[in-house]
């Protein structure tokens, strides 16, 4: 049912989503923590910037990325100066685009979870001489574990479903930038409905399962709180 090239796009998509999710968690955790605790005047601005991809059409992000990463753009000149070369049409470029595009889906659940943590827990941990790292792993992480679950699942799933940005900066290269959503689009455009159905069904089942797991887990948590 799925051809070898369809399977390749699936594998590439999983690789992209895993790597992007990992990076988003690494960046998103300190960012969300800062956003949940800060009184800074910059909070609104940073919040707005992080949330931008939620409302911007992916074509806007794709267009700016294409310009910024290109040989005349600031990031493009930096990466070329560093010897990395140009990022458009590469897997690394897609990872960067995905991180920017899906970051709000990671930051927002974390921010909500962090905001719900009572400062007194942390103060208690501090009086018991827990280091900041220690209190992160033994206080914050367990208390915010549902936030981390939501963040990872949503970040991963949203990256899998990414399309417009990839179409604009990817260049449709097998094993590099040809992800599932682009492959489905091309099957449909080329009137290969049979193959489009195969891949589309895989994505549909995947997305539904992911959301089902997420909502079931969160539902149980609320039951437990009652």
């Amino acid at each position: 049912m799925l051809s070898a090239s369809d399977l390749d796009t699936l594998l590439l998509t999983l690789k992209l989503a895993s790597l992007a999710t990992l990076i988003m968690l690494l960046i998103g955790t300190p960012l969300a923590w800062w956003l949940s605790r800060t009184q800074s005047a910059w909070k609104g601005v940073i919040n707005a910037i992080v949330a931008l991809p939620l409302v911007l059409p992916p074509t806007v992000l794709g267009f700016y990325l294409l310009l910024a990463l290109g040989p005349h753009g600031a990031i493009g000149q930096l990466t070329r100066w560093l010897g990395i070369g140009g990022l458009p049409f590469t897997f690394a470029g897609l990872v960067l685009a995905s991180v920017l595009y899906s970051l709000p889906f990671v930051v927002q659940p974390l921010q909500t979870a962090f905001a719900a943590i009572d400062q007194r827990w942390l103060d208690t941990a501090a009086t018991l001489r827990a280091s900041r790292l220690d209190s992160f792993f033994s206080v914050i992480l367990p208390l915010a574990k549902h936030g981390f679950l939501s963040a990872s699942v949503l970040g991963f799933a949203h990256t899998v479903g990414e399309f417009g940005v990839v179409l604009m900066v990817g260049g449709n290269i097998p094993d590099q930038t040809r992800v599932v959503s682009v492959q489905i689009y091309n099957h449909v455009e080329a009137l290969e409905y049979g193959q489009a159905h195969g891949l589309a069904a895989v994505l549909l089942v995947f997305s539904f399962s992911v959301l089902l797991v997420l909502y079931s887990v969160n539902h149980k948590r609320w039951d437990g709180l009652r």
Binding site: L66, L67, L69, G70, P71, H72, G86, P88, F89, G171
Partner: peptide, 8 residues
């Protein structure tokens, strides 16, 4: 567009 932005 790929060519005019210099990316290709």
């Amino acid at each position: 567009q790929f060519i005019s932005t210099g990316n290709a």
